[in-house]
Nucleic acid binder design. Structure first.
Lengths: 163, 163
DNA sequence: GCATAAGATGACTTGAAGGTCATATACTCT
DNA sequence: AGAGTATATGACCTTCAAGTCATCTTATGC
């Protein structure tokens, strides 16, 4: 599971991606996503130092993506925010676990960790934006939607790390 | 990833399981595993309230398993210690993520979470103890062991959540 | 019953993540 | 230049997991 901070960043940037280049205010993003405004400002600032977003102060300013949405992967975001997931550590959280001196869950965990990392590499902000806008549309169309339908709507284009 | 506390508990109980019924002191377990002694005492106490271990004070006392090692799964331990993994929460850590209102990673995450939970159900303390004692033996036998060999030693009997 | 050995328990400390707030800085428009 | 609008930044607060420590309680053996 990603840190809450990283989760915020993905949601926020997904929203920015949907705006297609129009600068969004931190305030707008915050209100749309429910992320605390001041905290989001810090996250945006971190992302801008890493070049993932561009920020502009003053009238007409706001936040835009630093490069095309399809070129910003979830992994890039994790990496920019130094997410703990990328720092290793085995399932049982023991220091002394490595390929040489494995803990009981090591083999299992390596596999799962790899899948997660692959997932992060395979999905980018264009995917997130598409997913989000699709969900919004679907929700408008069907007032009483089934759980299955909701899952389908999500499944359509978001890449699952195969196997 | 499990909490550090849960990780401690698995290691400690695996060690207790290896003792085959002979009571072990918290001090012994702590020294053998490197888990901080006072903290381990608290964990053991929690586990004993849940019945996973039996404790005995006074001379000749110590910690034993509350039931046969094969009947204590990793899931039981997580559950006894209220591990965050069992509390839900999606990959992006957002509150508003459910099957109905999914976040972009929801489908991916549900699958992986299920695999993890299954893994916890399928592996018990007998498995952990067998794994650990096997590892110790293997390490004695080969001074210069390859990474592959080490992985094999672990792979032999520990169940991978299939798929 | 006393000495000793063990776990039990509660108060306290520490460190990191998450979050708030006041103020500084940079930009635009008139 | 000055007013107004944005992000930037650092100081601070809060919460929680992890860890320490002193003291209490319960057991055994003489």
């Amino acid at each position: 599971m990603l840190s809450q901070t990283t989760g915020y960043a993905v949601l926020a940037l997904g929203f920015v991606a949907e705006a297609q280049g129009r600068p969004l205010l931190v305030k707008e993003i915050s209100e749309a996503t429910g992320i605390p405004r001041s905290y989001l400002a810090k996250i945006v600032n971190q992302l801008s130092r890493k070049g993932l977003v561009a920020t502009q102060r003053g009238i007409g300013g706001g936040v835009t993506l630093g490069r095309p949405a399809a070129k910003i992967t979830l992994y890039d975001i994790c990496s920019a925010l130094d997410d703990p997931l990328l720092k290793g550590g085995c399932m049982l959280g023991t220091a002394e676990c490595s390929d040489e001196r494995a803990c009981p869950a090591h083999s299992f965990w390596s596999t799962h960790r790899d899948r997660q990392i692959r997932f992060l590499h395979e999905n980018n902000l264009a995917d997130v934006a598409a997913f989000e806008s699709r969900q919004r549309k679907t929700r408008l169309r069907e007032t009483r939607r089934t759980k299955k339908a909701a899952e389908e709507a999500g499944r359509v284009r978001f890449k699952e790390a195969s196997q």
